[in-house]
């Protein structure tokens, strides 16, 4: 519970404090992805649920759309890690970060367009959003790779298996 609040707090702090375009850093998503890569456990999706719902309470998008997009993209990434991206190198973390964020945003845009068709919200899809989307993907992929490399080197140093006697 404390961990969830801490992730939410840091996510909010980064969005509020960082200048554009670095404020596109989605800390919440990066942490969830990092946990999926690191632990390879579907239970992480359960952590995503309260985190996503807590951010939905302060969102203008119709309730549930963002959570659905987040869960689908994390599930997709988990499947990719199990079946395709099986080599856990740094470039796989980079690729994971990029594909996961793109799939999350694309799913979210599809859901928003669907909601707009049903007159639930007024949203019009614009192609000019594409550069912003790619930049967001790149920033988050780099942040995920940095976090992955830092945690890997840190865990190897502290793991008794790697300490020579």
């Amino acid at each position: 519970m404390v961990g969830i609040f801490l992730i939410f707090f840091v996510h909010t702090l980064l969005i509020y404090l960082l200048p554009y375009p670095v404020n596109r850093l989605n800390f919440l998503f990066i942490i969830l992805l990092w946990l999926i890569i690191y632990k390879n456990d579907p239970l992480i999706l359960w952590v995503a649920l309260p985190l996503s719902f807590s951010t939905e309470l302060f969102s203008s998008a119709p309730f549930g759309l963002s959570t659905a997009a987040l869960l689908f993209s994390l599930f997709l990434e988990h499947w990719l890690l199990l079946n395709i991206f099986t080599n856990h190198s740094w470039y796989i973390a980079l690729l994971c970060g990029f594909t996961a964020l793109l799939s999350y945003r694309i799913l979210f845009l599809i859901f928003m367009s669907g909601a707009a068709l049903l007159k639930i919200t007024d949203y019009s899809l614009q192609w000019s959003i594409l550069p912003d989307l790619l930049m967001e993907g790149a920033i988050n992929a780099c942040a995920l790779t940095a976090l992955y490399l830092a945690s890997r080197s840190f865990s190897k140093r502290l793991n008794p298996r790697y300490i020579g006697l």
């Binding site: 909010t12 951010t55 969102s59 203008s60 979210f108 959003i129």
Partner: peptide, 13 residues
């Protein structure tokens, strides 16, 4: 009280 957290738009609460 803050900015919107999820989407990339310019919205405030």
């Amino acid at each position: 009280i803050g900015k919107e957290l999820l989407t990339t738009g310019q919205k405030v609460l």
